[in-house]
Simulated assay, not measured.
Amino acid sequence: MSKTADAPPKLKLEQYLGLQIRRQRQAQGLKITDVSRIAGISQGMLSKIENAQVSTSLDTLTRLCDVLGLPMSKLFSQYDQQGGGALLVSSGEGLEVVRRGTEKGHTYQLLNHTRGPKKSFEAYLITMDDAAEEFPTFSHPGTEFIHLLDGRLIYRHGNQLYPMGPGDSLTFDAEVPHGPETLIEVPLRLLSIMNYDQS
């Protein structure tokens, strides 16, 4: 079963603010001693703020933002946006789907879904365990990326044949006829990501 990103616990405000302040300080190459001295707060207090061990006043946050050149509005800008749209699909829990050409011993697991009216991409984990299986030719809009995890095969794209082993990747125009030509070593697992043209 897929899980949306709001499933993990959201950062508390103190944790979020401490993380943002530490990142901004480190991005500028500043030490805690430098920032605490200029802001007029103790090193211990700044350390506690960065590690979410204390709640801090708006006055202290304002002074820290001034030292770091960080607008207060920007400091808070992304807090309410946490967990807004990621999708976690746990191992083995992708939705099994049937596609043209899917036969016994050949399964597709859909690893994502796209919210909204337009589908921008699809990601599949494809498993094949029948070396005698024959495949139709596929053709669809967009660009496809495939990455072979296990097994060996020869993959056809247009008039070209590409031998592939574990760890090999292939990116191609998906409107050109393509598909597995020969399964050399099974079981075979293939990650397929299809990016659709939105123009």
Rank of each mutant, 00 (worst) to 15 (best):
P117R: 15
H140P: 08
E122K: 14
D59K: 13
E50L: 00
R152W: 01
L75V: 03
E103D: 15
I41G: 03
S73W: 13
S91H: 15
T127Q: 06
L148Y: 09
V89W: 04
Q109I: 08
L95V: 06
I146F: 00
H106W: 11
G40N: 10
I154L: 06
R100L: 10
E134G: 04
Y155W: 10
F76L: 05
G142F: 00
V89Y: 06
L46V: 04
V97Y: 12
H140E: 05
Q109K: 02
S90N: 15
R100P: 03
Q81N: 08
L68I: 01
A86I: 09
Q81W: 11
S47D: 03
S42A: 01
T127Y: 10
H113K: 15
L110P: 04
L75M: 07
L87S: 11
A52Y: 03
L64W: 01
G105V: 04
C65K: 08
P71D: 00
A132S: 11
S90A: 13
L68N: 12
T56W: 02
L153C: 07
R115N: 14
R115V: 13
T56V: 02
G92P: 12
S77N: 06
T143M: 09
G84W: 07
G101L: 07
E50Q: 07
V89E: 02
Y155V: 05
R100Y: 11
H147V: 11
R152S: 02
E122W: 08
E133K: 15
M128P: 02
D59F: 07
R100N: 09
L70E: 04
G105T: 09
E122F: 05
G94Y: 02
A132C: 10
S57W: 05
R152K: 11
L87K: 13
T114C: 13
S120V: 14
S77F: 05
D129R: 08
F121I: 01
H113F: 12
F76C: 08
L125V: 02
M45E: 07
L111V: 05
L58I: 02
I154C: 12
S55R: 09
L61G: 02
D59T: 01
Y124E: 09
R152E: 09
E96T: 14
I49N: 05
T143D: 13
S91A: 14
L148E: 02
S77K: 03
G105H: 08
G94R: 07
G40H: 00
G84I: 15
F138P: 12
